[in-house]
Write a protein that binds this DNA or RNA. Structure first.
Lengths: 333, 333
DNA sequence: TTTATTTGAGAAAGCGCTTTCTAATTGCTT
DNA sequence: AAGCAATTAGAAAGCGCTTTCTCAAATAAA
């Protein structure tokens, strides 16, 4: 591996000049510049990024924290982040948080110890204070799907309330009146807002909110099953079901089928997120799209602005839309 | 951020001593060692990984190349690699190859320019020679799902032939005699071997191989549909279908349903890979499990051995197993 | 022509660490 | 007690680059 010294020698200039040509910040005599450029090509010189990082205390790497790597939702997120950042010649270091405080903290420490220039996180367990502290004392942070008081400009969010509203309103428009709801964990803001939207749709339609028709689960497929079973055990009839995410919807669907129900006629179901498998389930899932890829891209752009002086337009709040497929149908009553 | 100098000063020793304590390679007087350790704690000192890398030309980072980030199969791969490597305090830099020669090459160059210590790849488009060259002239390489002549110890593979065999034999055991096959692209070794296994199962059962019952697709969901349509148009009857991966199976399933078939009774279908959505489709997919997570973990361990002097046991060939669900049933004939 | 100003190139310091080399101290041997 | 080897600590060089500082040359102003 040739170093900058060899390039300088071959070009017959000092290494400062080579550096200047490489970084293009200061002006260099045209002739010398050309000599340097030729030397670079002849030697097939590639700057050592580690040395460069040490010298200017910048690693051009962004740490990414996701709860898991093998979930389609976070796959979309990473895909968008990676491509946006790599286009700017930055690289991503990906870590996994597993929805667990210990692991997330660990992952963040790890990223910091790796001298990342910034962090993009889908943090589940870390506290607001911790995140705020990182942002203030260590390095800039972008947060996807999270809202933190002291950090408004760094939080990229979906209008979850609207999403919940859209899902339920769709069912209302199909003539359903008795609509059950499988919620995500209410300590999570998104789950909370989705439920809120659901309730608003109900209220606007002049329908009562029956807590017997709401089940609090944990966003898992398993809880989709458990939730449906529990709701049915309560013996309050319902003809439609809104699920706080597609995993729960998928669980509910297979559970319903195991119960001998014929879908979608016996029960209309709407999901949330429109993850990749939403159209693999049968009946194909009507759901609320979550533009996670767009949001992820935006978080990357925010970081590009904040840390590397770019000036992309930043949008903080994203709108969900309804994706109509076949799992919710008209209520024949 | 405190540096090693401050630690040395506070402990009243030279920075060489601090370095020695930190790395534990040379022996240090017990008293001094303790003083250093205390200073480290008091200052909350964390070694600068960039400086360390520059000094010992090792970044403790491993480059990973996958075709895409938002596919469950590669999610499993990354998950396993990340956790294995991070447990050893290494970090992964993930890049995307998009199944495209240009992009893959680009990604590899990128990883090299980032001074990775090694590469773990699921390379689709790169040539054997290129990979061999990287391994010889730049840095150690581990290859998942690929077999290269000159690099036998670095190739972690599934016994795809056996997988194809298992799938078809299962159908034979269920009484099917007319079995169609949706193949992956035959220039890919795995697709080729899977088909080979299929043919062996047929031969062993004394059945002829009818090329009219084989369709060559591209591993995509779309080609699952196209393939099924094409096979049916050929007018050679079949009661079962083996698909070279779950995506094609999923495409074939929804296509069959759109055609008004009742699954699994009108057509038994077997997939390959057992990706996460395999049990979301309806009927739940009988498929061949691909222990990609185990293979990925093994690739990481190989690198840990090769580059960082660990000595894990390395297994190069992995066995697929049949996962029986509900998409393939007895042939009533 | 002389002086002031700008431009551009080289020298050298510094980023924070590892490691080799040197020197001092300790413990053995005889 | 003198002479030697074995430990162990410190000094210093070096990893490959950026950037400040300095100075020479070129240009503009007087």
């Amino acid at each position: 591996m040739p170093t900058i010294y060899q390039v300088a020698e071959r070009a017959g200039v000092s290494l400062s000049t080579v550096s200047r040509v490489l970084n293009g910040k200061a002006s260099v005599n045209k002739v010398l510049k050309e000599r340097v450029e030729n030397a670079v090509i002849e030697l097939n010189y590639r700057p050592n990024s580690v040395a460069r990082s040490l010298a200017n205390s910048r690693t051009d790497s962004i740490g990414v924290l996701v709860p898991e790597l093998n979930a389609p939702f976070f796959g979309d997120l990473m895909q968008a982040v990676e491509s946006t950042l790599r286009a700017a010649d930055k690289h991503v270091i990906i870590t996994v948080g597993r929805n667990c405080l210990e692991t997330e903290k660990d992952a963040v420490e790890f990223l910091i110890s790796r001298n990342c220039d910034a962090l993009i996180m889908h943090a589940e367990a870390l506290s607001d204070e911790y995140l705020l502290d990182i942002n203030q004392s260590k390095l800039p942070v972008a947060l996807v799907n999270r809202q933190i008081e002291g950090l408004p400009e760094a939080c990229i969010n979906l209008d979850n309330e609207k999403g919940g509203y859209l899902a339920t309103r769709h069912l209302l428009e199909l003539g359903h009146k008795d609509i059950a709801y499988l919620s995500g964990p209410l300590e999570k803001r998104d789950a909370c807002m989705r439920l809120k939207g659901h309730k608003r749709a109900l209220s606007e339609a002049g329908l009562p909110i029956n807590s017997q028709l709401i089940f609090n689960g944990d966003y898992t497929e398993e809880d989709g099953k458990v939730g449906l079973l529990e709701l049915m055990a309560r013996d309050v009839p319902f003809t439609a079901l809104v699920c706080a995410n597609d995993w729960m919807a998928s669980g509910a669907i297979s559970c319903a089928r195991d119960l001998g129900m014929s879908l979608p006629h016996d029960l209309s179901i709407v999901g949330f997120d429109d993850v990749v498998f939403a159209h693999h389930v049968f009946p194909r899932l009507t759901t609320v799209s979550n533009p996670i890829a767009d949001m992820a891209e935006m978080s990357a752009k925010y970081i590009l602005n904040k840390v590397y002086g770019q000036s992309n337009k930043v949008q903080l709040c994203f709108e969900p839309t309804l994706v109509v497929r076949e799992s919710a149908v008209k209520h024949e009553g």
